[in-house]
Amino acid sequence: MTHAIQAVPEEIYDIELEHSLLEANAKLAKENRALLDEHGVTAFDFMGAIGSGKTTVIARLVERLKDKFGIAVFNGDATVANDTEPIAKQGIPVVQIATVNGCHLDANLVGKGLKKIDLKSLDLILIENIGNLICPAEFPLGSRSRVVVVSVTEGPWMVKKHPHMFLGAEIVVINKIDLAEAMDVKVEQLVRDVHTLKPDIRVVPASCKTGKGLDEIARLLAPAKSNANA
């Protein structure tokens, strides 16, 4: 990695490098992806603010997908939380990942989780990242796509405030649209904001209360081999 060592007066030396600080995580993410590919498993990384509804969206998606696919959920939290009950009681494997107050999941933690479950029985893994719209952006986990969950209760400026998270995502769920009117938030404006950042991103307005949009998200996540039935 060292290209040149250049001596200068006063015996100060330079080491010229191109040493990436994100490389260690990126390498582990690639290893996770290779392991998943080898077993024909597709993983999605769900990101979003605290309270955006990531856990509930995942629980509703599991309801729609668990009969057709082998599915597992990885739940990242700063501490071990018990909010995965609605998911675990659906009889699918759930892996709790506590970051011990770290602000994002990383590929190393997810890799450890992958060793805990029987990948041969799975088609799909939904990974819930830590509730944070900034920190997870720099740390890929090995998933095929990243899904951002924002809700209208976070106000009208979420996309403009956190552009980086959207640039790295392939799917955006605009959640809690049943509350849009009460919140005086225009869902169409949020959709336009996302498309201003990245025109080809899939945006799905949804509500876990009315069920709107959830079938469409489930279809987007369904592994290709069974798409026709999903």
Partner: peptide, 13 residues
């Protein structure tokens, strides 16, 4: 634009 890398380390021997 996604980089985060050490470019130079200057040190005294």
């Amino acid at each position: 634009g996604h980089e985060c890398a050490i470019k130079t380390i200057q040190y005294a021997a």
